[in-house]
């Protein structure tokens, strides 16, 4: 039933189309493409259109697009060249930096060496001075000690002579001073 209705509808519609084409003003009869009465009109306007488009393109659009593309290609090339140059510069800067670093290190080492040597020299000098002073002081001290010892010996001799004379006197003897002195001296030498 449904299919039947459909075919009816199509048939009727086709009939209607034919009717419309028969008495409708602008409706198509067959292929409008083969209605040669419209060809001069289409060909005329086509040629006008193509000439207009050709002039718009060849005079305005294409030179403009070509220049934009060329400019872009130029810009890109320049940018790449500039980038290359900057890279080289960066490389140079890095080299210079490394060189400077190495120089600074060498200089620092040299300065450290110099300072060490100077300090060593000063130290040596101070040591020598101190040694000399110590030696001088030692000598002085030894001399003082020797003096003190000599004085002490003299005092002992004197005391011994006096004591000996006193002892002799106390024992009831009399001794002359020179005899006592000789005796003391010979004793002290023996001691």
């Amino acid at each position: 039933m449904a299919g039947n209705t459909d075919t009816h509808a199509v048939a009727e519609a086709g009939h209607g189309a034919a009717d419309a084409a028969a008495h409708g003003g602008g409706d198509a009869v067959g292929m409008p493409q083969l209605d040669f009465s419209s060809w001069p009109n289409q060909i005329f306007w086509l040629i006008v259109t193509l000439v207009v488009i050709y002039f718009i393109l060849s005079r305005v659009a294409l030179p403009r697009i070509a220049s934009v593309l060329a400019e872009r290609a130029g810009t890109v090339t320049n940018d790449i060249a500039a980038a290359e140059e900057l890279k080289l510069k960066a490389q140079e800067a890095e080299d210079a930096y490394n060189q400077a670093l190495a120089d600074a290190r060498a200089e620092a080492n040299r300065i450290i060496g110099e300072a060490k040597a100077e300090i060593q020299a000063e130290l040596d000098e101070a040591n020598a001075k101190a040694d000399a002073e110590i030696a001088a002081r030692t000598a002085e001290s030894e001399k003082a000690i020797a003096d003190i010892r000599a004085n002490a010996v003299a005092s002992v001799e004197e005391v011994a002579k006096a004591t000996a004379a006193e002892i002799v006197a106390a024992l009831g003897g009399s001794a002359d001073a020179s005899t006592v002195d000789d005796a003391v001296q010979s004793q002290m030498k023996g001691a």
Partner: peptide, 11 residues
Amino acid sequence: LVFHPMDQFVV
């Protein structure tokens, strides 16, 4: 229901 498939090509 109208079938005019070629009408669109009429000059």
